Simulated scan of single mutants.
Amino acid sequence: MAGRVVPERVRFAAAVVDPGASARVLEIGCGPGAAAEVLCPRLTGGGRMLAVDRSTVAVARTTERNAVHVANGVLEVRPSTLAGLEVPGSSVDIAFTVNVNLFWTGDPGAELAVLRRALTPGGVLHVLYEGPPPAAVTAGLERHGWSVEPVAGDGGAGVTARPR
């Protein structure tokens, strides 16, 4: 990580996500790949991370920044919207987003349906922001059958959600 900036919001997200060594992690909206850079070294017991972004530029940046994690099979990076994401059912233990607006700018029903299928029983979604999340985040999650708990700390705030 020498010479590369890891924003405080990403450090906050990494602390909230806190994957175990064998966790299967999904990052929605990977941007330049800072979160993958912080989380992949923790996946030492067979864990894997899938990072997706609708921007091909973001996918390229994440892939380049994390070339060693891609090469060793810990990280897969692909272009995709969340609504269009295809993953096997019950293949994700932890999903998270940092500063992704899709959970409050419209109805997230299609995206939450994808996550509901993808998450393992007991799996969790963290929707995180630099500051307090808009009220629409909690409202949308609850409307689509998710239980929501607030989370906050240095560098960010958000919600942790589980399908009901």
Rank of each mutant, 00 (worst) to 15 (best):
A2F: 13
G3C: 02
A13K: 01
A14Q: 01
A21V: 11
G29D: 04
G31A: 13
G33H: 09
A35L: 09
A36P: 08
A36G: 08
A36L: 03
V38C: 07
C40R: 03
R42T: 11
R42L: 13
T44Q: 13
G47A: 11
V52W: 10
R54W: 01
S55M: 02
S55Q: 07
A58W: 05
V59S: 12
V59Q: 02
A60F: 11
T63R: 14
E64M: 08
A71L: 10
A71C: 09
N72K: 13
N72L: 05
N72M: 04
G73F: 06
L75F: 11
R78H: 08
T81R: 13
A83Y: 04
V87D: 00
G89H: 15
G89Q: 11
S90Y: 11
N99M: 13
N101A: 14
W104V: 00
G106Q: 12
G109N: 07
G109V: 15
G109C: 12
L112K: 07
V114S: 07
R117S: 14
L119V: 10
L119P: 09
T120N: 13
V124E: 14
L125I: 02
H126V: 01
L128G: 01
Y129M: 02
E130D: 15
P133D: 02
A135Q: 15
V137I: 01
A139L: 07
A139K: 11
H144Q: 05
H144Y: 03
W146M: 00
E149N: 11
G155E: 10
V159Y: 04
